[in-house]
Structure formats: structure tokens, C-alpha cells
Design a protein around this nucleic acid. Structure first.
Length: 480
RNA sequence: GGCCCCCUCGUCUAGUGGUUAGGACUCAAGAUUUUCGAUCUUGAAACAGGGGUUCGAGCCCCCUGGGGGUCACCA
């Protein structure tokens, strides 16, 4: 690469960041870092109706949480600002004006409603969709006159024949017959540009060298290429990423629970895991690796190795990866990340040392931080009544023999710490010939009312001998 | 429907003319563990179909089939 590349992530602020957007941002970021280029954030807010207050700030925040800090963008600055399209309207109008003067665009007075009806009719007839180009042949003088007083849009004058060849970094050459390309609106009647115009103008002005975006844009490439041509500028390189799909193999939307980045964070998937997972959706190195940190991704990433086919989002594998990352975190970091998920539990006030003890006892079981309260239930100081399975264990013959015996010996202990208590369990096991599950499950059930959970030693240590002995006694009463 | 893209285990993928088609998730079995996780070992599981080209095709070409995207004054 001769010059350092400049790439951008250009979301529209219409809601949450979704996982498709996150992956697009990630690939752009990886490409920029890999080639020592610049990663730019640009907000494409040309749709005034769908615009959502605060969405842009939220997107930036989430990118930062993921470690994808832009080099330029709103709130950040840079030499090519402003980075918000609604602040660049003058620029688009000028560009559109030049297109109009050069005869590559024309005003259209047809109005949106009648056009929508027409499109539907045409589609019903099996014709190519799109505008019927009624205004394309208006007298220039007359058109100009009407523009003064009538509401209108500006349309791109697409050649009626010929073809346009697009060379894609991922897909190779793609040929589009121009006869199938609509006379796209480039300036709306409210004076705002459409995506196509604003996008092309900005990518040029911001000196974007590589456009890396989702495949849903592939079919509008001819419009964009035409725009570059008519504006007299060299188009950037393009890479169209395969789509991320839901189980129905359709484009994943942010409306679906699995599609929302924020929803995953709320469930306690660490950002590094989401990044890692999403990186693997459409890209893989030649080695057999799956677990990557962001910086390892930067080293390994290669845009030309991105695959062409859509990838189904698999929450199960994401959660596995999440567990892997959670386990890799250093303890202090993990403690801090756990705290928000402890907030509404009975453990909200406990100290870091205890949290650490908790975490270490369940670390291997943890896939999402929102599992914390469930996993920690055995430590509860106000346990619910024993569950069905525990009850079964408490009613075994082994339990009936064991529990009273244990309780009495525990009571008799001068220094009843966890280790001493457990030694008694072992001793009783030997004496009675009860071993394995038969030995330990009744104890666990008596102590926690559950049949799963962390090591008993840790639980007893936390509960304290008093509490432990009391619970044993209660269990004995229960099975009498 | 037009145009465009895509097609290797259930899922994500490795593979660029000669491979027992590899890995990961999931699943199953075994081991280990005071339970469940976790861990280790083993196993099940795929080249959409049909024609070519070639000594030889998952890899190249064509057709069929299937999936998807797009056809807005939304991005």
C-alpha cells in the first residue's frame, strides 16, 4: 500500500449499534491499524425522520468500550470535519449544483406519492422498478423556472444503456447493466442529500481510500461509481462484507435480541468476546485459532481473506468465547466488571475480597456476567427451601444415616472451621462406607438446598461454622 | 419478478488440481472431579445436484437447484 489508507465507519444514528455495524466498524478499524492508516467515524444523519437523539453519542461510546477508538470523528475532531453530515449540507448542495449544471442531474417534480404508486404498478407488470423518468426530458429552461416555485427533488441522470464494471476487493469483478439502474434521487425535497450523494461526496472530501461496508450496498455501487465519475474524482477501493444472518438466514436486524450490541453487554458478554466473535463471522486466518484479543486480530487480519457468503450469528459459540475471555481476565478487572451485576442481589454490599472468593469458585462456570446471581445462590444467607432434587438426596438412606451423625460431630468440634468440618465428612464416609455422590450430595443439599454449586469448602467458609451447623440441624429435622 | 451476490459437517470455517477433506462451537462416550461447570481423551458430523475440462476435481467451465441482498425523497 503506497499511502496510509483512510477508512471510515459511517453509521446513521437511528438506534442502537447492531452487531453487523460493529463488525463493519471492527473490520475498518483492523484494516486501518494493520496498515498504519486512519480510522474515521462519520455520522450519516441525513434522514431527519428516523434520526434519534443521542444515538450518535451512544455509538461512539460503544465503539470506545470495544476498543475501537476512531482517529477522527465527531467529539474527536480532525482535519476533514465536520464529521456529521447534517452539518455539511452546503457541501452537498454545491456538489448537486455542479451535477445539475453539467447535465448529470435534473429536477423532478413528480412528488413522492404518485411515484410510489407508479413503482408498484410497474413491479406488478414485471417491469424494472424505479422512476419512469418523466421529468428527465423536461425543457431545461422550463425546469429551471419551475424549480423556483415548485417542490422538487434532484435526480441522477443515469445512462440508458451500457454497463458499469465494479472491482471488489472481496468479490472480484461485478458487472451491472446500466439499463437496470434507477434515476436515483440525490437531493430530497427537504434539501437534504440522500445517502448516495452525501456518502460519495464525503468519502472523496475525507480522502477515504477504502470503503468497507456490508453487502447490502453492493447493488447501489453503480450509482456511486457514476457519481464519482460525474464529480470528476477517482473512486476509492471497495470491499463488500458478507451479511450477518439470523437463524432464518435473513439479514440480522437490531430488532432481534441477538442483533443488539448493547443487549449483549447488558447480559454480561465482555466487549472483547463480542469483538472476537464478530471478527470470526466472515473472516478466518489459515491457522486453527479462535480466541483472539483485539491486538492479536490487528496482527492477523487480512481483508482479502474475508469470505463471501453470509454467516449465521450463533449465540452459543459467542457465549463459549465469552467464557474464554472471562477466564482470561485478571482478577481485579473481573471483580470490577462483576459489580454492576451484583447490584440488585443480596451481595451488593460485599467487599472485593469476598467477591474475589466468589468469582474464583465459579469462574469456570461463567459464560455471561448476568449468570452471576444464579451461580452465587449457594452462598445465599437466606436460601430458598431445598429444590426437588435436593429433597431426593436428603431422603436417601445414606442421608438419613449420615446427616444426624455429622451434625452431632460438627457440634462437638472445638475449632469448627471448614477444613475440620469436611474432614469429619470424610471420616464418616469411611466409617459408614458411604462414598462419592452418596456421601457429598446430602451434605450439599443440606447446606445449600441445591445440588450444584461451588466447592463446599468455599461455601462453608463463607457461611461460617455456626450457620453451617444450623443448616445441618435443620435438614435433620426436615427428614425426621 | 428484474438485477446482483452466495453455496465444504447443524453452525463458524481451513482448503486455491493429487488431502484418510483439517480446526472450533454444539452433541455423544470415557477419564478426572466431593456435585455441576471446567479439564483431558475418543467419537459422530460436510464438499447442493448434474454435466464437462483433466491422468486426476471441493478447488477450473457450464447448467440446474437452493439461499440471500436490492429495487424509497431509509441508511
Amino acid at each position: 500500500m503506497d499511502k496510509p489508507p483512510r477508512v471510515r465507519f459511517a453509521p446513521s444514528p437511528t438506534g442502537d449499534l447492531h452487531v453487523g455495524g460493529l463488525r463493519t466498524a471492527l473490520y475498518n478499524h483492523l484494516f486501518a491499524r494493520r496498515h498504519r492508516g486512519r480510522f474515521i467515524l462519520r455520522i450519516e444523519d441525513t434522514d431527519r425522520e428516523r434520526h434519534l437523539e443521542g444515538a450518535a453519542a451512544q455509538i461512539l461510546k460503544l465503539l470506545r468500550v470495544c476498543g475501537l477508538e476512531p482517529d477522527e470523528g465527531p467529539e474527536i475532531g480532525g482535519d476533514f470535519g465536520p464529521y456529521v453530515q447534517s452539518q455539511r449540507l452546503q457541501i452537498y448542495r454545491q456538489a448537486a449544483g455542479r451535477l445539475l449544471d453539467a447535465g448529470h442531474a435534473y429536477p423532478c417534480f413528480c412528488g413522492s406519492r404518485s411515484e410510489a404508486q407508479r413503482s408498484e404498478q410497474q413491479r406488478a407488470l414485471g417491469q424494472g422498478a424505479g422512476y419512469d423518468r418523466r421529468c428527465r426530458t423536461l425543457e431545461p429552461a422550463q425546469a429551471k423556472y419551475r424549480m423556483e416555485s415548485e417542490e422538487h427533488v434532484l435526480r441522477l441522470k443515469v445512462p440508458l444503456e451500457g454497463e458499469i464494471i465494479h472491482r471488489d476487493m472481496i468479490r472480484g469483478d461485478v458487472v451491472f447493466p446500466l439499463a437496470d439502474v434507477d434515476d436515483q434521487v440525490i437531493i430530497k425535497s427537504d434539501g437534504f442529500p440522500t445517502y448516495h450523494l452525501a456518502n460519495v461526496v464525503d468519502d472523496h472530501l475525507m480522502e477515504i481510500t477504502h470503503v468497507i461496508r456490508g453487502e447490502e450496498w453492493l447493488s447501489s455501487v453503480p450509482k456511486h461509481l457514476l457519481l464519482y465519475r460525474y464529480l470528476g474524482v477517482k473512486p476509492p477501493e471497495f470491499a463488500h462484507l458478507p451479511l450477518i444472518l439470523n437463524e432464518q438466514r435473513q439479514k440480522l436486524s437490531k430488532r432481534e435480541g441477538t442483533g443488539s450490541v448493547q443487549a449483549w453487554f447488558q447480559r454480561g458478554i465482555p466487549p472483547e468476546a463480542l469483538i472476537n466473535y464478530v471478527a470470526l463471522l466472515g473472516w478466518h486466518s489459515t491457522d486453527d485459532r479462535d480466541v483472539y484479543s483485539l491486538s492479536e486480530l490487528v496482527d492477523a487480519f487480512d481483508l482479502t481473506r474475508v469470505s463471501k457468503s453470509g454467516a449465521i450469528f450463533d449465540a452459543v459459540k459467542l457465549e463459549w468465547l465469552s467464557g474464554e475471555h472471562l477466564r482470561k481476565l485478571n482478577t481485579d478487572d473481573l471483580i470490577q466488571r462483576c459489580k454492576p451485576f451484583l447490584k440488585d442481589t443480596e451481595f451488593s454490599e460485599i467487599d472485593d475480597a469476598t467477591i474475589q472468593m466468589f468469582i474464583e469458585s465459579i469462574r469456570n462456570n461463567l459464560h455471561r456476567l448476568d449468570q452471576l446471581s444464579g451461580l452465587l445462590k449457594p452462598f445465599s444467607l437466606k436460601p430458598p427451601p431445598p429444590d426437588a432434587e435436593s429433597l431426593n438426596w436428603l431422603q436417601t438412606d445414606a442421608a438419613r444415616r449420615l446427616l444426624p451423625l455429622l451434625t452431632n460431630r460438627w457440634r462437638a468440634l472445638p475449632q469448627p472451621d471448614a477444613e475440620a468440618l469436611l474432614n469429619i465428612v470424610r471420616d464418616c464416609g469411611k466409617e459408614t462406607g458411604i462414598k462419592g455422590k452418596d456421601l457429598w450430595m446430602p451434605v450439599r443439599a443440606a447446606l445449600t438446598g441445591m445440588t450444584t454449586g461451588p466447592e463446599l469448602r468455599v461455601i462453608i467458609t463463607y457461611l461460617g461454622d455456626r450457620q453451617a451447623i444450623d443448616r445441618m440441624a435443620q435438614a435433620c429435622d426436615l427428614i425426621q
